[in-house]
């Protein structure tokens, strides 16, 4: 990929996560400009707010685990459109906090949330066709598609995200070890 003239397209999506990983991504701050100077174009990403990436993306970044049918479609779409897929954050990498619901069946969960919860006044189960369906189990991204690189962390530090992207852009193989590898 080492060709600083050619543009390198990066797209990101956010599945079942808290957006913390995207905040970390933006925390690269001025280093985002370094990346742009090296030819990076952020297509579908927090910069453009586009939801559907273009067809020829070089690096696709996925935050969050896969918890609904829509998210399942989205990560599959990312796989089709991106040459390299990076799972970013503990949710995308391992499943993370959203998998806590795997201890329960969906029925139990919905009943608790929409009918029994003290904070829920109208006891109404949302059933519009536009709402995504919950999958029976929340999954890590690599249970749905092939993932090329993993950046665990909750959220991963901006320095680590920059390191991985920069290595890839420079045509080197990134290595997550020592202080760069963390689960917290």
């Amino acid at each position: 990929m080492k060709n600083t003239k050619k543009e390198i397209k990066i797209s990101t999506i956010w599945c079942e996560g808290c957006s913390g990983c995207h905040m970390s991504f933006l925390d690269m701050d001025e280093r985002l400009i370094d990346l742009i100077k090296k030819g990076v174009v952020f297509s579908a990403s927090p910069f453009t707010d586009l939801k559907i990436p273009e067809d020829d993306v070089d690096i696709g970044i996925i935050e969050g685990s896969v918890a609904t049918d829509t998210q399942e479609e989205e990560v599959k779409m990312m796989r089709e459109k991106c040459k390299i897929i990076i799972a970013i954050g503990d949710c995308a990498v391992f499943g993370g906090i959203p998998t806590m619901r795997n201890y329960y069946k969906i029925d139990e969960l919905s009943k608790r949330v929409y009918h029994e919860a003290e904070s829920n006044a109208n006891k109404h189960y949302p059933n519009s066709k536009d709402i995504s369906k919950l999958l029976p189990r929340v999954k890590a991204v690599n249970e749905v598609i092939k993932v090329d690189y993993y950046i665990p962390g909750c959220p991963p530090n901006a320095d680590i995200i920059f390191y991985i992207l920069n290595e890839l852009i420079e045509g080197r193989e990134p290595k997550l070890e020592n202080e760069k590898l963390t689960y917290e």
Partner: peptide
Amino acid sequence: YCMYCAITSHCEFQNLGYYTKLDHFSFPT
């Protein structure tokens, strides 16, 4: 999931994860 564990960052088990460079699971949990 270490992020909300009371001993994260001084956990023997976690340190072994770092030692083996475990950065994802190869099978469902």
